[in-house]
Nucleic acid binder design. Structure first.
Lengths: 246, 246
DNA sequence: CCTAAATGTCTATTAATATAGACAACCATA
DNA sequence: TATGGTTGTCTATATTAATAGACATTTAGG
């Protein structure tokens, strides 16, 4: 498709090396360099983007930091990792099944849990009284040791007391629900937005600053349509895409 | 929810003023300042983000440039615009209906059209032979005079010859299809990713550089399941969210 | 009509970004 | 084993981003 020059911009608040790093990362994910398994030489990239070679080197250093490339003197800059996990969003969306066989090792970590009164917004979404108790879980999910999502998720406390322990033991919302007697649940709505990563997400998702995050706000209900969970999940945009099949 | 300090990051390739501008823009969209209709004073923001007042001023200047706020000496920084268009993604997703009454004026502009052979990727998606002719439309959509999406969309040329003119006249894909005898079509899949805006999109969508773009890759079929359109649409992430209802 | 609370403007300094050029070190391969 | 292509390192300089402080100007309200 459009090979568009789409050059790089100055004085925009985004450093050139970061723009270039983002572009190269995208090209790698896109398979542009699959033939050689290498990124083009620094000289070539510098000419392509119309910048100094040192600027390109800064970009490549950032990508090396992320573990995406590895520079070898005399040989070139080799592509180490190249992936974009796909998350299908359907009526039966589940994180662990969604990844499927795209990753071998899947982990779900409980970072923090709390019991608190529902805010106005949250109580409306969960169809409970404002101020009614909810359980909040802060979780981190990993695939093949790399963090792929950082979620904040709320459950009505009356119905799902003890879900903290259930999640901590199983590392899975689906399994935790089952332990508490909910055999099935459905995704009724998902809102998707994108923002720049903030401090906490940078740390938890091991991103280099300036990274983009896909935000999904999801509401799950039981089979009778009663809300059981509201979740805000944040995914590194360069590693993840969502697919909606209708 | 978490009032999280979520401070701002240095030496990351993203200037502080841009990070702060992004955060304030998000807060405005989120309705955080609805009570006063104003952004907090520069002093307060500077303390909040842990930066110099001048840095905050740079951020506010950028937002003023975008038409989101307006600073008035002696009074404060007033919120001018505050919106995030919602695009429902369903089996019957249509751009114009999707916007619904969120905007008064809706426009669809044809920037460019071309007839070309289908790439390998495209032919697979449209279920046509590789190299078979397709019509490509480059379109820009606006709501209330502001650009909200920049799309590249392909149609099998054999079936939809003349769709360029039909689109140009009507400004709507749905109407253009109808003119060519296709009364109905369905959205079968949508892939959502997020990237930094490139040069062309910055210009077309009138964004300030460094902006985030939501990318939706969509496949539409006729009621018999035969692919009729593949589209890649780019939306300004700070103006738009997608909602998937299951 | 004064005052407090804002934003506007100016000067000066430091740190981060980007450019420029030269040359060393390393690797594959002819 | 010589050579061309590549990354690594160093020095120097210019531009942009960020901090710091002082003071002017405007507005709203007591």
């Amino acid at each position: 498709m459009d090979t568009g020059q789409a050059n790089v911009h100055r004085q925009n608040g985004v450093a050139l090396w970061r723009q270039i790093a983002d572009r190269i990362r995208a090209s790698i994910a896109n398979g542009d360099y699959d033939a050689s398994g290498k990124v083009p030489p620094e000289f070539t990239l510098a000419a392509q983007f119309g910048v100094n070679r040192h600027t390109v080197r800064s970009a490549l250093a950032a990508l090396a930091q992320e573990g995406i490339v590895r520079s070898v003197q005399g040989r070139g800059t080799l592509i180490e990792r190249k992936e974009r996990l796909n998350f299908p969003i359907t009526r039966r969306t589940r994180f662990s099944e969604g990844i499927g066989d795209q990753a071998r090792e899947k982990e779900g970590l409980l970072l923090h849990s709390a019991r608190e009164p529902a805010s106005a917004d949250l109580s409306a979404r969960l169809h409970i009284a404002e101020g009614a108790p909810v359980i909040r879980l802060e979780t981190l999910r990993k695939a093949d040791r790399r963090p792929v999502s950082r979620s904040t998720t709320w459950f009505p406390a009356e119905r799902f007391g003890g879900i903290e322990e259930a999640y901590e033991k199983t590392g899975s919302i689906t399994a935790a629900f089952r332990k508490l007697g909910l055999a099935d649940y459905l995704r009724v709505s998902t809102e998707v937005t994108a923002i720049h990563a903030d401090g906490a997400d940078l740390a938890d998702l091991q991103l280099s600053p300036g990274a983009i995050i896909l935000v999904a706000r999801a509401l799950n209900t039981d089979p009778d349509g009663v809300p059981v969970q509201y979740a805000i999940s944040r995914f590194p945009a360069d590693m993840v895409q969502f697919t909606i099949e209708n």
